[in-house]
Computed example of a mutant assay.
Amino acid sequence: MGLFGSIMNKIFHHKAAAPAAPTAAAAPAAPAAAAAAAAPPPEPVDVEAVLVELAAQKGGGGNWRTSIVDLLKMLDLDSSLAARKELAEELDVHAGAHGSAEQNIALQKAVWEALAKNGGKVPASLRD
């Protein structure tokens, strides 16, 4: 799993991110199967809510909204230049030199966009 997969895993599988699923134990087998087949897709994960909670648990989380380094550190992931180079390759980000402010900003925006494309609810305030 690449670095972006690790980011998704940390956010999408955070204990607060999983919506409560109703149980169908009392329903007969056929209606339960029909209900499962007709069930709506799972709710998107509220990325900002999960990250706000994580930041509170970690004493603030730095400037995770705009800093890819702070976001990675808050998620207990490698934030080194080598890791950010890997992330840039994964997300096809080629803005500025590796480690530059330009690339870090582009990486942060690419992460928000990729999370949104993969089932995350990411507010425009993070993506802008």
Rank of each mutant, 00 (worst) to 15 (best):
H94E: 13
K109V: 02
L81N: 00
L81M: 05
A83Y: 01
K73G: 01
L91C: 05
A56Y: 08
E86N: 06
K73T: 04
A106F: 06
W112E: 10
A97L: 13
L115Y: 03
G61A: 13
A101N: 04
W64F: 14
K85T: 00
A114K: 15
G61E: 08
I68G: 01
S100T: 09
A114P: 03
R65K: 15
R65G: 08
M74A: 09
L72W: 00
N118G: 07
H98M: 02
L77K: 02
E89G: 11
K109F: 00
E113A: 15
Q103D: 00
W112Y: 15
A56S: 15
E86R: 02
N104F: 01
A83V: 00
A95C: 12
A106N: 02
W64N: 07
E89M: 03
L77F: 06
L77R: 01
S79T: 01
L81H: 00
D70H: 15
R65H: 14
K85H: 04
D76P: 00
R84S: 00
S100Q: 06
N63M: 11
A106C: 08
S80L: 03
G119C: 10
A114G: 04
K117F: 08
A97G: 11
H94Y: 11
E86F: 00
D78S: 07
S79V: 04
A110T: 11
Q57W: 07
W112M: 12
I105S: 12
K58A: 15
S100L: 01
K73S: 01
K109G: 03
E90V: 07
M74W: 07
Q108A: 13
